[in-house]
Nucleic acid binder design. Structure first.
Length: 751
DNA sequence: TAACTAACTTAGAAACCCTACG
DNA sequence: CGTAGGGTTTCTAAGTTAGTTA
């Protein structure tokens, strides 16, 4: 058997001696696996591999073997094989099925970042006045907030009005004691001009009103009936509530999926009375249609409400927002992101999620942990109830937490992205990425060196890092099989996810990636790689089954530990941030031309943004109405064209007329006509740009990168440089989130 | 060391709402 | 004035990362 392990050993062409210790360790781990099936599977695959003792394998093995001082093993990484195999048996076309229905198919290539300059990182590096080095620099002058300067005040006028309305309202807030403190300055607080906490403390004072619970269940009116096997059946309130969750979703594809139905039915039965349970044994015999109709009618009714009713609803919402949607954190009133507790319902996992359809139970006060300062006025639980706990932990940022019943994970209520606590973190994230910029050359040289390492784990680490850097892949943690959809990232890639082509379409050493990533979004890409990478991949894949891990000596923890050594604060995800931001900056430089008008410049911006979205594989399902809306737009364009030729014709005749008549009036008429033509031309151009933009955006989602990966200062600087109002790039919410960047970035900001 | 836990960021879909157009 | 449809907001799932525990 010992030989059977060989493929697991750390060894590379360099070869080395056999290592029995490792084998033992490996065995030990095996026994830790909870599932016996998995052990069996393990054995199976070992046998399978032993069959592959080809000469090259032998050669490697016999030569000096690379050792893994870390004693790393195959670890649990492949423990989940069995299930996957089973699934595959069931559906050979699993891939196709699993794929999201977003129509994504073709390899999207980032046109920029050509191979040849990949390792050249932009040189110019300059720091802004106010900037501080993210980690240790605290030499910030805590300026007191003053009036914003005129320019900005002007620019922000529209929202400012809205803002001040809000700030007025807040006077309603409790103003007791020293803590609550000084009246909020009416101007926007520039937290970025103040010093930060350094010691892991997130706040000194925190007060809030607790969460808003989901409204209690309202039983259906008696005329809305449920039928089982064609016969009316009155359900108990508990069973009825869960039934309505399903009834509401009848039009959704989920309800056609086997797993969803199975999970739902199982959980639903748990809520039934013994009688109901005895009777309702087959979901297919359940008729939820009246419920479905009822809820549809309800939403129609809501839409059809009178203005006053709508206004009333709005005001009620606003009241709730004012009361529960804000907290006081360190003397400032800050917006809470999700102050409403998630209502009960059926779990909607993405992709092929094994738990889809399970009942997400209602959260009650006794499930809730409150976090606030000791010296604050603690939120009251609803009458007759108790919180699970009230704690005062100022090393964390959340206000409320509870444990969710599907995955057993913890959910939190936290602050809005516009808040200081989120903003600082965001800013810091980009500063870390900028620090990476300074040393990325070194790191790239290093991993290129490591491709030649004698140690397998180092080679794997280096190749993985290359992918993360070049392709902006996610780190790829291991996941518990059967708990979530089968998706992967870089470190968890399996052999089946890549194909190697020594030569493909005229290019050498092409790797084809095809896997499901986060949210079960397909990643498909064909990329030429360096020869050494290619050879390494061949080596990593040797004697492995399709569902073996490509990087069996690597996981995210190992990788991140290594990265940490290369640069303080460096982790795998920093590469995504860095590459996204640097790409935007590069693309903006490349695509923006001074002569173009504003709409054209904005198109360029969107294209630069798009390059990033493609790099990060941010996709969306093409809107259902996409084709139609494209057509509509085309019709508009055609109409505009006609209008233009009409206007031109009129201009012509006006000109002719003016020539003959030579009077003021006809001259004027020419001028007007000229203007009209110009105006129409502009409109046409705008429409055409819009069409191009939309077409190019069909399956690409720009929002995610804009919100999470692109240093906003790059965009702000670009706007300032070209005289584009930031509003054209960022909507109100985005401007709130990026207020720090809008305030501090000048037109010469360099990422 | 690996498994587990906590905290926090990132993500696409769906719901909502506003506005331009007929 | 009604409405389509597109932008915005909300929702909550699904990741990453670091720290703790066994």
């Amino acid at each position: 058997m010992s030989g059977d392990h060989s493929h697991n050993e750390d060894q590379v062409d360099g070869g080395s001696r056999f290592n029995d210790k490792y084998k033992d360790k490996y065995k030990e781990k095996e026994h830790k696996h909870k599932d016996h099936k998995k052990d069996k599977e393990r054995e199976k695959s070992k046998h399978g591999n032993s069959d592959h003792k080809d000469s090259s394998d032998k050669k490697h093995r016999d030569k000096e073997k690379m050792k893994h001082k870390d004693g790393s093993t195959d670890k649990y990484k492949d423990k989940h094989k069995e299930k996957r195999k089973e699934e595959k048996m069931k559906s050979l076309d699993g891939k196709v099925k699993k794929e999201k229905e977003n129509g994504f198919a073709s390899p999207l290539h980032l046109k920029s970042e050509p191979e040849d300059n990949f390792y050249h990182s932009p040189k110019h590096e300059r720091s802004l006045k106010r900037e501080r080095d993210d980690d240790n620099d605290t030499e910030f002058k805590p300026k007191k907030i003053k009036i914003e300067n005129d320019k900005k005040a002007k620019k922000r006028k529209p929202e400012e009005d809205a803002k001040s309305k809000k700030t007025k309202n807040k006077k309603g807030e409790v103003a007791d004691g020293k803590k609550k403190a000084k009246k909020e300055p009416e101007e926007k607080w520039k937290w970025w001009e103040e010093e930060r906490y350094t010691d892991g403390v997130k706040w000194k004072f925190l007060e809030h009103k607790g969460p808003v619970f989901a409204p209690p269940y309202e039983p259906l009116p008696s005329n809305v009936k449920f039928y089982y096997d064609g016969k009316h059946m009155k359900l108990s309130p508990e069973a009825e509530e869960v039934a309505t969750f399903f009834g509401k979703m009848l039009d959704h594809e989920y309800t056609t999926k086997d797993i969803f139905r199975k999970n739902f039915f199982k959980d639903w039965r748990k809520e039934m009375t013994p009688e109901e349970k005895a009777k309702i044994t087959d979901l297919k015999k359940c008729d939820f249609n009246e419920m479905n109709d009822y809820f549809k009618a309800q939403s129609e009714a809501r839409k059809a409400m009178t203005k006053e009713e709508k206004l009333q609803r709005k005001e009620e919402n606003e009241r709730l927002l004012q009361e529960y949607g804000f907290c006081i954190m360190d003397n400032h009133r800050e917006r809470i992101a999700n102050f409403r507790i998630e209502p009960p319902g059926l779990f909607r996992g993405r992709g092929d999620h094994p738990k889809m359809g399970m009942l997400k139970r209602r959260i009650r006060p006794q499930d809730i942990i409150i976090n606030c300062s000791k010296d604050s006025k603690h939120p009251e639980p609803p009458p007759g109830t108790k919180w699970k706990e009230v704690r005062h932990d100022n090393k964390v940022t959340w206000l409320v937490s509870w444990t969710e019943n599907i995955q057993g994970s913890i959910k939190y209520i936290m602050l809005n992205p516009s808040s200081r606590i989120k903003g600082e973190k965001d800013w810091q994230k980009y500063e870390t990425a900028r620090r990476l910029k300074k040393c990325v050359d070194r790191i790239r040289n290093q991993y290129r060196e490591d491709w030649k390492s004698k140690e397998m784990r180092i080679r794997q680490r280096a190749v993985a890092l290359y992918f993360i850097d070049k392709l902006a892949l996610r780190a790829g943690n291991e996941k518990e099989e059967g708990e979530t959809a089968d998706t992967v990232g870089c470190c968890s890639l399996r052999v089946e996810h890549i194909k190697l082509y020594p030569e493909n379409e005229g290019q050498e050493y092409v790797v084809e990636f095809d896997f499901l990533g986060k949210d079960s979004i397909r990643y498909y890409n064909k990329v030429p790689v360096e020869k050494r990478v290619f050879k390494n991949l061949q080596l990593f894949m040797e004697n492995k089954e399709p569902d073996d891990d490509l990087f069996d000596r690597l996981n995210t923890s190992v990788l991140n530990k290594h990265l940490q050594e290369l640069m303080d604060g460096l982790t795998a995800k920093v590469f995504r941030t860095y590459n996204a931001s640097i790409t935007l900056q590069q693309q903006l430089k490349e695509l923006t031309s001074a002569e173009e008008n504003i709409p054209a410049k904005i198109l360029s911006y969107n294209r630069a943004n798009r390059a990033v979205a493609i790099l990060c594989n941010h996709q969306r399902a093409p809107p259902k109405t996409f084709e139609k809306s494209m057509q509509n737009l085309q019709t508009k364009i055609d109409a505009k064209r006609d209008q233009l030729s009409d206007a031109k014709r009129e201009l012509k005749s006006a000109k002719a007329d003016a020539k003959v008549r030579r009077d003021e009036k006809s001259k004027k008429s020419v001028e007007t006509k000229k203007k009209a033509v110009q105006r129409i031309e502009e409109q046409l151009m705008k429409l055409e740009v819009q069409a191009t933009d939309r077409e190019e955006n069909k399956q690409i989602a720009l929002g995610t990168s804009k919100l999470n990966y692109l240093d906003p200062r790059i965009s702000v600087a670009w706007c300032k440089k070209w005289g584009i109002p930031v509003e054209k790039i960022y909507n109100k919410t985005q401007r709130e989130k990026f207020a720090w960047a809008i305030d501090m970035a000048d037109d010469d900001f360099e990422f």
